[in-house]
Design a protein around this nucleic acid. Sequence first.
DNA 1: TAAAAAATGTGATAATTATCACTTATGCTT
DNA 2: AAGCATAAGTGATAATTATCACATTTTTTA
Lengths: 234, 234
Amino acid sequence: MLDQCKKCTGRYCATKVSIFSALEKEQLSEVTNLIVRRTYKKGQIICFEGDISDKLYVINKGKIKIFKYTKEGKEQILYILSEGDFIGDLSLLKEEELKFNAEALEDVNMCILTKRDFDNILKSNPEIALKILEVVHDRIVKLENLIQSLSTKDIEARIASLLISFIKDFGVNKKDRLELNIPLSREDMANYIGVTRETISRKLSNLQSEGIIELVGNKRIIIKDIEGLEYLAE
Amino acid sequence: MLDQCKKCTGRYCATKVSIFSALEKEQLSEVTNLIVRRTYKKGQIICFEGDISDKLYVINKGKIKIFKYTKEGKEQILYILSEGDFIGDLSLLKEEELKFNAEALEDVNMCILTKRDFDNILKSNPEIALKILEVVHDRIVKLENLIQSLSTKDIEARIASLLISFIKDFGVNKKDRLELNIPLSREDMANYIGVTRETISRKLSNLQSEGIIELVGNKRIIIKDIEGLEYLAE
DNA sequence: TAAAAAATGTGATAATTATCACTTATGCTT
DNA sequence: AAGCATAAGTGATAATTATCACATTTTTTA
């Protein structure tokens, strides 16, 4: 089921990937030739926990969520990944079981490289390892922030932090106002910061009453008072 | 204040460090020559959040905790590090501000390499980057587990998970029984999993009443029913 | 476009843990 | 070894959020 991805032609694909930014032009087009492209519909599962990772998935377009299940059976989102990001960390290097699930939050174009090809690229370009380290470091920072958020008792602060982190992920400047275009359900958001759907509903309503945000339908949030939000997040 | 570390002579030091395991013998002794050694007393702070990381710290002996402060001013422990572990992730590569604090949980012998020396070693041995990736991957796994624990509502399960993870860190087999020798205070343990000291006190007492563990003073816990513990942690 | 399904909002209540205040135990210092 | 300082245990209460049940809105689909 490997559809050709129409929007992703020629060398475009590999140049988007930061870990390949160390490569020369010709190596880059070599990599591009090895890439297979595939699309995923919104809501489609890209990989499951327990799958053997024998491929490198790079996002060419769209956003995905990486999550595990908690003991209570709820999803715990670990990362939101976008264009240029790849799935996995050491699963890039070792063929081992994936420790998470990945699901498309919107329609996604994915570039896929076999592990064998990737290993060869890595072997002839060891400096890529340093690039990977940088990306992996970013992930560690994200995880540490998530931990700090989860260990913060004040739920309003957690939600404020969540919204602020969403600015980078889902923010769009529309007619001089900051709007979030969130492909996550309320339940997703709740699971992300470890509260129930009902609680996040109530707290978002509160933030709206306080004039800090404005809720537009279920997928859009206008940030009316960014300073207020930052103050809450501390 | 750089004391010579008596217990750590010759090439012993560098061989303990997994990231240098890719090196040949002669390179290893080169590294060893560049290392400066220092001791830290129990409770001593090794580095602060905000410090500029211009050194690579490798633990030769002892255990340390890596932590940040939550918004409520409590410590959030991110890792417990032991012999062979090093401090920092990308701070190994870039000279940037440390994002955490490190404190000695017991008397610690530390091997210190300047960033300049480390960079040179890395440059002439790029395969070390892969070794670092492996270690960093382990850290990601630890963080992901911590996140899973923090997002689990059932506090008994969190505590059970904590105790199980302590087996690897602090477990000693003593006369065919499994004992934990924990250099953390109750408050540390509480902060680690995001509850209060009082709550962890009560829950540990409960586990003792149920015959799953036995509390011996404040620093030792005997695990009497490991299956029961694993069942609680699920 | 209507109907059905899914997601979200909301009130009442229950359950849990944080807080506070204090007692007791532990461990360190001299 | 005694005394002191720190850490840990415990009870009562307050605060918060999860749960549950159901209304309402939004989205999907036929």
